[in-house]
């Protein structure tokens, strides 16, 4: 029986990581480390962890500074795997823990598999152009996993296990202030249908046309990175891709988006992809189920009319 650790930014992610751990070894004993209080740690037990530690966010310290404590504990407990939520704090903590343990760490991995002691998984390379499959027999392997990488384990309130708070030893960096993220009105990851706006839109006011299309088909509006990052026409939370939002909608309609790998990575799990682009040869068409070669100025009114029809 293997010991597998999971380290989660929040209880929901812990549910996902429990599933990942069980997929590697159905009989594994899971120790959970969850950011938050002991109630949050207890949630991980209801998902199937044998025991759990709370890692409260220190008022004036970095949460990732739990890394040395975790690494020391791992040296004695010798978990075979440490599965970590691929949140920003999680990634930092995973990398630091990996360095301290001289362990391989696979970032945002998929297709985790174990055959004997040989572990393998896939990671995206070249902006999502390809998947690199790696294998290792290292004694401890660290993997970071996305929030939707596995179907979350179901809670069972009757499960019990020890719950405690992990000691924290503060590092040199001091947190002087935390400004919570302003909640956006759009919640792209939960949207069933998404229209994506790209640089095919040359003026901010033109986005109204994309919004009209979205309204006609009941979709939210997202965008490619340049629209949010360079032009700042839409909030950063709206950009889709490897360094932005990773979505799993029923429908994604890319309008005026060239389809670079970094962008399409964010919608590769969409059920259906539609592309509207004037360039017949564009990559987005290659990555679509249905495409229209034409300008959005011509195509959007036609689709709106048909959808309302």
């Amino acid at each position: 029986m293997r010991d597998i650790w999971i380290v989660a930014e929040n209880p929901a992610w812990a549910a996902t990581l429990v599933s990942a751990a069980k997929s590697l070894d159905a009989d594994c004993a899971i120790t959970a480390f969850v950011k938050g209080d002991e109630a949050a740690a207890k949630d991980a037990v209801t998902y199937g962890a044998a025991s759990a530690f709370a890692l409260p966010l220190p008022a004036a310290g970095l949460w990732e500074d739990y890394a040395p404590t975790l690494a020391e504990k791992a040296k004695t407990d010798k978990p075979a795997f440490i599965l970590v939520s691929a949140s920003r704090r999680g990634r930092d903590l995973a990398a630091r823990t990996a360095a301290l343990l001289e362990a391989p760490c696979f970032s945002d991995a998929a297709q985790l598999a174990l055959s004997g002691n040989a572990f393998s998984c896939g990671t995206s390379v070249f902006g999502g152009t390809a998947v690199r499959t790696s294998s290792t027999s290292a004694p401890v392997v660290i993997v970071t996993l996305g929030a939707k990488s596995y179907e979350p384990a179901a809670a069972d309130a009757s499960r019990s296990g020890a719950v405690a708070t992990l000691p924290y030893s503060a590092g040199a960096a001091k947190v002087t202030e935390r400004k919570p993220r302003v909640k956006q009105s759009v919640n792209l990851p939960e949207a069933a249908k998404v229209v994506g706006v790209g640089r095919g839109f040359s003026e901010e006011k033109d986005i109204a046309a994309a919004r009209e299309l979205a309204a006609a088909i009941g979709a939210e509006v997202g965008c490619s990175r340049p629209i949010a990052e360079f032009f700042k026409w839409m909030p950063e939370e709206c950009y889709i891709g490897i360094s932005g939002q990773i979505l799993k909608p029923q429908l994604y309609v890319a309008v005026g988006i060239s389809g670079q790998a970094q962008h399409t990575f964010g919608v590769r799990d969409a059920k259906v992809i539609v592309s509207i682009n004037k360039d017949e040869e564009c990559l987005m068409h290659q990555n679509a189920d249905y495409y229209i070669v034409g300008t959005w100025q011509d195509a959007i009114p036609a689709i709106v009319k048909a959808a309302k029809g």
Binding site: P104, T133, N287
Partner: peptide
Amino acid sequence: ASAIVSVLAPETSRKRQRMN
């Protein structure tokens, strides 16, 4: 500490149907 088994473009099962 790890070996690269393969580097392959993901399989796409998109229909690529041009509507016009």
